[in-house]
Design a protein around this nucleic acid. Structure first.
Length: 465
RNA sequence: GUCCCUAUCGUCUAGAGGCCUAGGACAAUACCCUUUCACGGUAUGAACCGGGGUUCGAAUCCCCGUGGGGACGCCA
């Protein structure tokens, strides 16, 4: 049996971090077993689904490089199929028409709630041997209800949570087609999972309660029941549930914030899943190790600090040329054109060990391309008379440094200034940083001088003298 | 209210009855490195929700509480 998994988002918004993790797990499980990963768009909620959201989901998956093998299938395009199956079930007697109005239903539910009972349909229109059904009211379009087994239990061995059992009397005859004939979610899922021959349903654990209903329909259809794996949800950094208005941001926000996709993948993989003490691993390694048995059954809290740490790790590991591209793109977004001088790859090499995000990297690179004038406070504090005298001395020595403009020679010039002025390294290096980059901290100053280049260094130095 | 899921350091987790004096990672703290700030290195503190069982032995199995989450739609 080849493994077939699916990711089935409803396109009512962007791909958020929880959805991305579910997609990652489904994708990885298929990859791990040489199977097929299917993307299915559950867009039957016409009012809330948008093409933009479909695109946003696809963009998010593309950024994370979670490629699907089949699809995207759109449920709206499979209406004919759902209607066909509904008719089959009507004919077979596993579904029936119900003429109860929505208002009437609400009354029943209210009464049940008042009696502290679980609100559920009372089976009034359910055909039973020997039972006389009410006369269908004229002019009312009926809904179609699934004829749920009246007793016994539905059970499955969840690949994450273990055995889960529901008593059938907890389940009522749920609606599979609305009065206007459109099918409902729990029904479409079943038809799709069967038609697409899904073998492993990996999804959020908010679907645990839907699973017994889906299994019952599957069995009524004589279909094979797939294996289920219910992955717990992700909580926000503050331990609160993620929601639209609380912390549930698009995965693309992580792109905007300067995270590398491999860092996000590694972080997400490790959030709620583990392989012993392994913390840092490649996508390939993850695919090799991934299993459902080591998914944690309880909810996990998102931790930005750990993501930052991983991101810093992957930035250190990234090629300078790639980081140069990121610097170009991100500074271009700020209206800064990055040319070849200084070479952004060299700037990246200078800073990649010290930043946690690509945005920090771009910020660090910024003063290499745009002269940043030190603030009044910084000038007052660091560009003292003594410091300026030293910088003047240094300016002369740097102007005399013969080509090539290299670190060792620059370091020598700096040391000569120290000897001439009797100052300590920080007493010159910090004012120099302020003069050149507009900030008192930077990587080793001789390296900065080298990357910045003779012309820029001399010009910026002259500007403060 | 009913049903379902869940519970190890602040956080992510290891843990499948004895390997646990509970391990790793992030974060924290201290020190080292250092040409500033970082990076890095070393070290330290920090947890089995509570109560009952089962067992020679329980973080691990069972039951009951408690906390947290989910569901109970002609939403998905």
């Amino acid at each position: 049996m080849t493994v077939r998994t699916r990711f089935a988002p409803s396109p009512t918004g962007y791909l958020h971090i929880g959805g991305a993790r579910t997609a990652l797990f489904s994708w990885a499980y298929a990859r791990r077993h040489g199977g097929t990963f299917i993307l299915r768009i559950e867009d039957t909620d016409i009012a809330r689904s948008t093409p933009e959201a479909v695109q946003a989901i696809i963009d998010g998956m593309q950024w994370l490089d979670l490629g699907h093998d089949e699809g995207p299938f759109h449920q709206m395009q499979r209406m004919y199929r759902y209607k066909e199956v509904i008719q089959q079930m009507l004919d077979a007697g596993t579904a029936y028409h119900c003429y109860m109005s929505a208002e009437e239903l609400e009354h029943i539910r209210e009464a049940q709630r008042a009696r502290n009972e679980k609100p559920r349909y009372d089976g009034c229109w359910r055909p039973e041997p020997g039972k006389t059904l009410p006369t269908p009211p004229s002019g009312v379009q009926p809904v179609v209800r699934f004829r749920n087994p009246p007793d016994g239990v539905v059970a499955w061995d969840d690949l994450v949570k273990g055995r889960i059992e529901f008593s059938n009397d907890e389940l009522d005859d749920f609606i599979i087609a609305r009065a206007d004939g459109t099918p409902t979610y729990n029904f479409c899922v079943v038809v799709d999972d069967r038609d697409m021959e899904i073998t492993h349903v990996i999804r959020g654990d908010d679907h645990v309660n839907n699973t017994p209903r889906q299994i019952n329909v599957l069995m009524a259809l004589g279909a094979t029941v797939p294996r289920y794996a219910h992955v717990s949800m992700i909580l926000g950094d503050d331990g609160q549930k993620l929601s639209k208005r609380h912390g549930a941001v698009s995965v693309m926000q992580y792109f905007d914030d300067g995270y590398l996709p491999e860092a996000v993948i590694n972080y997400l993989a490790r959030l709620g899943w583990s392989h012993g003490d392994e913390e840092v691993f490649s996508r390939e390694q993850f695919v090799q190790w991934f299993d459902l048995a080591h998914i944690t059954p309880s909810a996990a809290q998102f931790n930005t600090e750990k993501l930052n740490w991983l991101n810093a790790h992957y930035i250190k590991a990234a090629a300078d040329a790639r980081l140069a591209g990121e610097i170009r793109e991100r500074l271009a977004g700020q209206g800064v054109t990055v040319g070849d001088h200084p070479d952004p790859a060299r700037v990246a090499a200078l800073y990649k060990e010290r930043v946690a995000t690509l945005n920090e990297l771009a910020d660090a690179a910024h003063p290499f391309y745009v002269a940043t004038h030190p603030s009044v406070e910084l000038r007052a504090r660091h560009l003292t008379d003594a410091a300026l005298a030293a910088l003047r001395d240094l300016h002369g020595r740097l102007a005399d440094v013969p080509s090539p403009w290299e670190r060792a020679a620059l370091s020598q010039a700096l040391k000569a200034t120290l000897a001439a002025t009797g100052l300590k390294m920080p007493q010159v290096a910090i004012p120099l940083r302020v003069a050149l980059l507009g900030q008192p901290q930077s990587p080793a100053i001789d390296a900065v001088l080298e990357v910045l280049g003779r012309d820029t260094v001399l010009a910026r130095l002259a500007a403060v003298l």
